[in-house]
Every structure is written in C-alpha cells, then in structure tokens.
C-alpha cells in the first residue's frame, strides 16, 4: 500500500492522478517550454551567444598566427618586456594563447568595436574567465575557438584561468585593455 510495498493496483499505470498533480504537471511543463524558447529567442534577438566557430589547430600553427599579430600591432610592452601590448584595428582577428601559466599577449581593444578573438591552449585545458565582466569560456588544446566579442565598457579587464591546470594555475592571469 505504501511506497515500500507493492501497489494495490496491479495496473499502476491506470492509477488516477489527483487534480493537484495534473495542474502542477501542466504548469511545470509550460515553464519548461518557456525556458526552451528563451534560449532560441536569445539566439535570435539577444547579444550574448557563444560562437561555435571552431577549427582544429596545433601549437605551431596557432603560435605563428599570434606572432604575426604581435609583430604587426604591438604598441608597447609590459612586465619588463615579457608581455607585448597589441592593438589590432577594429574588426581584426586577434589571438590569445593560453599556456602554462600565462595568457599571451596583452590585448588592447576599442570600446563598441567588434573583434574575432581566437583562443586555444598549447598544453592542458585552461579557462578564459574575463573579470570583472564574468564571461567564462573553456579552452581546449587542439581546438581553435573563434569568439566574436564587442566590449561595451572601457577599462582594464583580467583574464583569470579558471580551469585547473597544475601547480601554477593560480598565477595564470592575462589582461585585456579596452579604450
């Protein structure tokens, strides 16, 4: 009779449901549908959707592209020359390398301009966690992920690695300036 003994109706699938259950199932179902359409709605009308543009890559291929960008657009260096600050023109392809344990180089972007940001890792998984905006994207080695970004506020942003990547994980922080 109770939940720990066999049901009194052998044919439990014919057991009637109470109105309270019927109403709740209906409401819950409608809510699930709202949540479903919300994702699709945001793809059509929202401004924050994660791109799925992805290519297979290798550390050599990606480094070559990042190096070319650095050679062309470096405006200054920081941390005793360790980090070039690169300011590519609006609309450009920009590259950020994630590796044990830094993000390289530092990018300098313009507010309200759009860039194609390429991300990959040279070694393990890493995390792209843009702070204080709080945008979080996984970085997987072997895959080049192209995300189109449009910064909407100027300031100094940090890129914190938020995928565990070994003993130096907590030192892995990069930077993006938005002018």
């Amino acid at each position: 009779m109770t939940a720990i003994s066999p049901p009194s109706d052998r044919l439990w699938w014919k057991h009637p449901l109470d109105r309270v259950e019927g109403i709740w199932i209906t409401i819950a179902f409608v809510w699930c549908m709202v949540m479903f359409f919300m994702m699709i709605y945001w793809h059509m009308y929202g401004n924050q959707n994660l791109s799925t543009e992805t290519y297979k890559t290798t550390p050599e291929m990606f480094t070559a592209k990042a190096q070319a960008m650095v050679d062309q657009y470096t405006v200054r260096t920081e941390v005793d020359g360790a980090y070039p600050v690169v300011a590519p023109p609006a609309g450009a392809d920009v590259y950020m390398i994630a590796r044990l344990w830094n993000f390289w180089p530092i990018l300098q972007l313009e507010k309200d301009q759009t860039y194609r940001l390429h991300l990959t890792s040279m070694d393990y998984n890493h995390g792209f966690s843009l702070q204080p905006a709080n945008i979080n994207i996984q970085i997987v080695p072997g895959y080049e992920h192209v995300v189109t970004v449009t910064p909407n506020q100027s300031g100094t942003y940090s890129v914190v690695c938020n995928e565990y990547c070994g003993i130096g994980h907590h030192t892995m922080v990069g930077r993006i300036y938005v002018k």
């Binding site: 980090y83 830094n102 995390g127 979080n136 938020n162 994980h169 907590h170 030192t171 922080v173 990069g174």
Partner: peptide, 20 residues
C-alpha cells in the same frame, strides 16, 4: 556570481605578474 574560480588555490594570485 562575482566570478571567483573553482579549484583555485589563491584568489590573491600571489606570484602572478598581472594579478587581478
């Protein structure tokens, strides 16, 4: 919600050149 990372030893990022 403020962005703090999981699996992270030091939220002060000691030893990092570009600490946040």
């Amino acid at each position: 919600t403020l962005g703090v990372s999981r699996r992270h030893w030091d939220m002060a990022f000691q030893g990092s050149a570009l600490a946040y």
